[in-house]
């Protein structure tokens, strides 16, 4: 929407016009202040940022072992810009596995945006039996994980 608005303002004679393409999602994800009335809870409000991550070339077994020790049954595989490539699940990786995360991961996990309505998103997760969803920026950078069950300790 903002690129079209920038184009329109340029047509109307404004100069210079800048487009903050990543917009409110990026601003909110950075925890910067905002103004306005109260808003409904968003995915961002329940985001868990401590999900383990690893690089594409990391050996799967040790990575998964570190995740298990931290209480997780998954590890998000990201590139050097923290863009999500896939997910390593405990059920797919033995502790001694030395193949890379890129070889072992489930690629292309479903993601959700940080500004989406929290209650509605969790409702859809429950309906579809999805326990966890990755939360990313529009350009795929990992922000964290949303649990369907809320803050009940389930991972």
């Amino acid at each position: 929407m903002s690129p079209r608005a920038a184009c329109r303002l340029t047509q109307l004679g404004f100069e210079p016009v800048y487009d903050y393409t990543l917009g409110k999602v990026d601003w909110l994800a950075a925890g910067l202040p905002t103004e306005g009335a109260a808003h409904p809870a968003r995915v961002l409000d329940a985001l868990r940022r401590d999900v383990p991550t690893c690089g594409l070339d990391a050996p799967g077994g040790p990575v998964m072992e570190r995740a298990r020790l931290a209480g997780w049954d998954r590890c998000v595989v990201v590139d050097d810009r923290r863009v999500v490539a896939g997910v390593l699940g405990a059920e797919r990786v033995d502790a001694g596995e030395q193949r890379s995360a890129a070889e072992l991961m489930a690629p292309g996990p479903t993601t959700v945006r940080a500004h989406e309505d929290l209650v509605a998103t969790r409702g859809r997760m429950v309906e579809r039996h999805v326990a966890h969803l990755l939360v990313t920026t529009p350009d795929g950078v990992l922000l964290g994980v949303l649990d369907a069950a809320g803050d009940d300790g389930a991972r």
């Binding site: 903002s2 920038a6 404004f14 210079p16 393409t21 990543l22 500004h115």
Partner: peptide, 10 residues
């Protein structure tokens, strides 16, 4: 200068 924004550019 003017800066426009929406949710995420889409």
């Amino acid at each position: 200068p003017v800066i426009v924004y929406c949710w995420d550019g889409l």
